[in-house]
Design a protein around this nucleic acid. Structure first.
Lengths: 385, 385
DNA sequence: ATGAAAGCGCTAACAA
DNA sequence: TTGTTAGCGCTTTCAT
């Protein structure tokens, strides 16, 4: 009935239509049990010849092999319900045709993308890029990709980013809040969904989702205890925004130890800043005028601690003799500044790794159990204290 | 014929089947012109009530609105061929149902994901995270997401990452090669494809794809000229792998200026290292034994320059009096080390931004024109030189 | 062991 | 202006 000839036996008698595939009529030759595609009007020949621009699809392989796409899919997925012979043949064919599966199609069906979304305040601050590095590496160990969005410490951007990611592109979301984030409705909205969310480093403690953070309280306790052992009693503390867990917990640790030693907290010794050069400088200037004189400064960040060291040096104040300086984070600069900075190593990279790991395990297991993981850190004593 | 009742008029007489949608039989009531879905056996009621776990789909909206999915799609896409009334109605409905389009489905159809792939050697080195920051920010300005992969300076990983990304998940690829990458077959393979590729910072100069990099030659010329003006004639240079453009071009600039001043290149003054502490230390030790004595060191990276400064100080060698030290990159540490590091600011962030911009413009325009963009930098003179 | 057909959620060509 | 239908590339019943 059809004028189409079988490319194998060249006969037209026993050709059957076998469905339309990708706009092309498929045929089947009963004689030689061969499937093929009609030469498209635009093509000069009927050889399956894809331009290099196009990805090879399952259907191309199927057509070339003369089997159904199902069979090809099964072969490539190492399913059991297929003969070893066909499997081997198709695998080799796919290989020679340089087949790469279309992840979009796979993901659309499977509803998984093997991709994590990460929202981070900035990439130019060492601690964040280090955490991201940990996240990325751990994820890739599990075979997951990472999409990053920076919020630039802006809550609006954080919200927009979350919306932009929760569109089936990711299997899980990791958030480190901006310094100004104080409401969490934008997180709550997404909490019931299929996609698990976890917070890391800067977390909203009472948000019922998994969180991974430094053991800030213990860290501050150790730092404060160390300074008191060295004879300090007038310990100033440079803190961040009051709503942040790192501020709260580090202050708590400081407070615990002062109490333990019967030292009264002096509000004048506390400064809440946004870590800008100006605010840090202003805080320092204020401290230096206080009597009794301060004999130590704990900075919530290494970066600011380094700034403080540089300014104290400019003012010819001896470190650690007159003032001991302590940082948090164990960033590389602390090693370079002179005197070298004593700091509490929060093991930032591990926080990233753990966040990644916990989230992926939630994704894989499907469990939505809330865990709150504290990463223990350790004192790094150098010259500044 | 059917026992199904219309939820509106509650009659069963004029109910027609209108296709099966998402496993559910759809119906149409001729009487009240109302589309609806049969109560699924597992559901208690026939109200369209999606569990919070499921995303709302176009079909859900269509069913709820009693129109076809096409109409909904058109309404939400602001197509002209739809009445204002329907459009407004559907938009509000979609909004109230909290509809989020499924990007995977959209991407499968449109063959675009609005996502860039970035392969970068590491995230823990300031220059890389800074470039990434530029890439990310510029991309998000264009409405593109960024998937990052780190190669950890390992060519195998770089190759694997490329393969892992070229599976329809990205619209374009940005690569910064590892320090060991010397063959580029793995790039060439993908060059003919639909997805444009660009290289940044560390590029293979003769690979015919768009590249964005620092104007290293001019940079090295300026640095060398500066040192010669200061009276240096024995200028050592710490370089990376010979196959890297940064090595080649920075050496070229150095060479140009030495030639100009009639100074012969001394091979002993050149060290090709992988930037590990050991290799840098070894190179330095070798240099210090050379006569006539070296009087300056240009390091291809700030990080190594800082290391060199620290070691010279340990050996009580005066900087800049005995040896002047110059870095490349203008990283933050250069400002902290004492003496502060003189460096050539390659404006790393701008390289990332430009890379992102050029690639996205290629994606949008479809043009595969090869451009080679040099980002000019500038000298930053501090104490070390 | 293999294939046909349906369907993931969406868009686009064509009809009405 | 709206709906019908097919199809993106893949997986998954269900039938053979």
């Amino acid at each position: 009935m059809s004028r189409v000839k079988c490319p194998k036996c060249n006969k037209a008698e026993r050709i059957l239509k076998s469905g339309i595939v990708r706009n092309k009529q498929r045929f089947y030759c009963k004689d030689c049990n061969y499937h093929f595609i009609e030469a498209s009007p635009k093509r000069k020949n009927n050889i399956v010849l894809k331009s290099n621009n196009d990805q090879i699809s399952l259907q191309d392989i199927a057509a070339a092999a003369g089997v159904s796409t199902t069979t090809v899919s099964r072969a490539l997925k190492d399913r059991t319900d297929i003969s070893e012979k066909t499997k081997k043949f198709i695998k080799e064919l796919a290989n020679s045709m340089n087949y790469q599966p279309n992840m979009l199609a796979q993901s659309l069906v499977s509803r998984t993308t093997h991709t994590l979304g990460v929202i981070i305040p900035s990439l130019e601050t060492t601690i964040f890029s280090t955490m991201l590095s940990g996240i990325q590496e751990e994820a890739s160990r599990y075979g997951y990709r990472v999409i990053i969005c920076t919020s630039n410490e802006n809550q609006e951007t954080e919200i927009a980013n979350i919306l932009g990611l929760m569109n089936n592109m990711i299997d899980g979301l990791l958030i480190c809040h901006t310094i100004q984030t104080s409401t969490f409705e934008h997180i709550r909205i997404h909490m019931g969904k299929r996609i698990p969310i976890a917070q890391f480093y800067r977390v909203a403690i009472d948000l019922p989702i998994t969180q991974i953070l430094a053991d800030d309280e213990v860290g501050a306790e150790e730092v404060t205890e160390y300074l008191i052992q060295k004879g300090c009693t007038r310990i100033a503390m440079l803190l961040g925004s009051k709503s942040l867990s790192i501020t709260q917990k580090r202050f708590k640790g400081y407070q615990n130890i002062l109490k333990k030693h019967g030292i009264k907290i002096d509000g004048k010794l506390l400064a809440y800043v946004d870590f800008s050069l100006e605010q840090v400088e202003k805080a320092l200037d204020k401290w230096l005028k206080i009597t009794p004189k301060i004999d130590a400064i704990i900075s919530i960040s290494d970066r600011s601690a380094v700034q403080i060291i540089r300014q104290l040096k400019k003012k010819k104040i001896k470190i650690p003799n007159q003032i001991r300086v302590f940082g948090f984070g164990n960033e590389f600069v602390g090693e370079i500044v002179e005197p070298q900075l004593s700091t509490f190593d929060t093991r930032i990279r591990v926080i990233g790794e753990e966040a990644s790991r916990l989230l992926i395990e939630q994704i894989i297991s499907g469990s939505r159990e809330i865990t709150s993981k504290l990463i223990p850190g350790k004192l790094v004593i150098r010259d500044s204290a």
